[in-house]
Design a protein around this nucleic acid. Structure first.
Lengths: 233, 233
DNA sequence: AAATCCACTCGCACACTGTACGAGGACTGT
DNA sequence: ACAGTCCTCGTACAGTGTGCGAGTGGATTT
């Protein structure tokens, strides 16, 4: 027996927008605003309805449920990602620009941290980016499954690096915590590990934003070098 | 003016367990069971209370709130991670074993996907692992901030690679979806991208579990090679 | 022995969530 | 005028985390 068909917004026909006022696009746009302003918990159907001067349940005409709405908003952000044509700029440059672009978009929409890697990325924008990434690593010289492995490694690095950065921003920058007080407390937690203590002490003299950016470049260079090395042998 | 002090379970004194019956440890253990069995949404204070034959709000004597409970459960899983002494086995071997161990633990506790990179990892177990990782990359030859960059790159890769794997398992393995039906639908979503279609077609002939493992090793090798390359120049 | 204290339990209540349902309104084509 | 379709939304339900305050039982102090 076959199981239930996998269901995603992208696998169904959208409702044709007959009414000029309300539309799926407008709802998604409003949802994005709410998400950017108040984060993932700030988006509730009631609030979204109010923002659109509509009843909460009216939205269910355009969107099957909240998850579907998130899928739509999710794909929308993929649209903002720049993926240069690798044929023009070379694969390393293309990969590098892509990586930085993904990071920037993630930092601009911190709520993505809760969706990335959880939702299937089947929307047209995500597909476009994924396709371009494949082209990039094909041009680099990968073939067969190794194209996938390379893309997976590359994106894994970007996600894994940016995710904690978002979390950090959420508690420290937007949050209401005092940096000095926090460091003092973290040092208490690390009391048993002299090396970690020394490490934390170093933090005092550096701008964490800059550090993050430098770390990202360092890691990106490493990952691309490591991938390139798979090609020569 | 100073902001609010950052608050985490680890930065407070735990309540001494005077009562023999209920204790913080027992609550965390029960929470872990619930999380493993029913996932992150399966854990509610009421359900957890019922499991322990207690009222939901009784737990608040031992734990300040749900987030704190999650912090405790979170750290518990770090305890299961194997980090070999790099002095004994060499840094590459130590890193490799660590990476695989983290992946295994994550796959065994899929709910971690919702916490990793979101919660600060300040618990004793997480600290132990972090410290060992630093030793590993110090032994490799990194110094100063580069130790951090290397560790961050390394862990970013592991998280970023395993996170989507967990999501995939959740929908396909534990989920109720039919693989063939899903592939057919995904192909529809990728209709505009001939290269992606070709790629999806390849999937038919491979065991995805094996593919994931191979991909992980491929990427790990790349990352470690890339990091090693930072040392020689 | 009596009184006080404190560790602990928990029922109730509040504000909030997603969304199923079904009654209605508005507009179209016949 | 009637039928049908598109669209709105009030109400309701089952759930969530958790603040509050009353209550209980055992140990400590007077």
């Amino acid at each position: 027996m076959t199981g239930k068909a996998y269901s995603s917004v992208w696998l169904r026909e959208p409702r044709k927008a007959t009414s000029p006022g309300r539309s799926r696009e407008e709802i998604v746009r409003a949802a994005l605003e709410l998400l950017d302003e108040e984060g993932i918990d700030g988006l509730s159907m009631r609030k979204l309805g109010a923002k659109l001067s509509a009843g909460a349940t009216s939205l269910y005409w355009y969107v099957a449920n909240k998850d579907e709405l998130l899928e739509l908003a999710y794909d929308e952000t993929w649209g903002a990602i720049t993926v240069p044509d690798p044929e023009e700029v070379g694969w390393r440059e293309a990969a590098s620009v892509t990586a930085h672009s993904v990071r920037q978009v993630m930092l601009r929409h911190p709520w993505l941290a809760h969706l990335l890697g959880r939702l299937p990325a089947l929307g047209p924008n995500a597909m476009r980016v994924a396709d371009r990434m494949r082209q990039t690593f094909k041009l680099a010289g990968f073939t067969g499954y190794e194209v996938d492995y390379a893309v997976a490694t590359f994106t894994a690095y970007i996600y894994g690096m940016t995710l904690p950065e978002i979390a950090w921003n959420a508690t420290m920058v937007d949050g209401e915590y005092d940096a000095d007080a926090m460091r003092a407390q973290v040092m208490k937690a690390a009391a048993d590990f002299p090396d970690m203590l020394e490490r934390i002490d170093m933090d005092t003299y550096e701008d964490p934003r800059v550090m993050r950016a430098v770390a990202f470049d360092f890691g990106l260079l490493s990952v691309l070098d490591g991938l390139e090395r798979r090609l020569v042998t």
